[in-house]
Amino acid sequence: MNRAVSLLLWLLDHLALGPHAESLAGDLEEELTNGRSATWFFYQALGAIILGLWNRIHNRLLALAFASAWSTLYTLWQFFSNGRLTPIDTTRFATLNWPYSSSVEIVTGILPAVTFIWLGLLLYILVRSDRDHRATPFHITLGLSVSLSVLLTATMGLMHHLSDTGLDLRLVTHRDFYLTLHLFAVSIPLALSLLTAILLSFPHTPRSSAYRTKLAR
């Protein structure tokens, strides 16, 4: 058996391309042994690898597209939620000592963004949950908590980046931080956070190794 054939069989065995990857590789080798041409084998093996990779990433691409599209609706969300989610008059807390004054400002500033992300996740779960894709309560909780950390980290990174570009962050209030002229840039933390929540909320689809093991029993 030449090297290219061995390499393709190795890739089919190790890329975890689906629950039937091992059987598929076995079928291709059996056909090759029974007289199929090497060209036939290459086409079949390459087709299997491409199809398997597509099956693996297309759910993630869908999640990425949804997270990107959803984050662009944040302006609309701000318009409708304005004053409803954070009805507290934050100026009352300005007289408080640090860190209480800052904490209230941070919470009221970030709450609309967090609610927006959670709403996006809820919508995605409602639309995508089916036999093949199930979000469990444990994974949803994990997704939401990690997504919050991602949002805070990405927001801090963005603030650092905006400071470098010369933007005076003191002139940006907590309320319109996500509505600055850098709309594209500010949607990145939102999209990253939502993407994290989605990916963690949906444990890998039945094509996971655990499912393969279950099938093999």
């Binding site: 689906g18 039937h20 598929l24 079928d27 291709l28 056909e31 079949q44 087709g47 199809l51």
Partner: peptide, 9 residues
């Protein structure tokens, strides 16, 4: 394509 057959299966 055998991969197509497996994908449908």
């Amino acid at each position: 394509s055998i991969a197509g057959v497996y994908s449908t299966l």
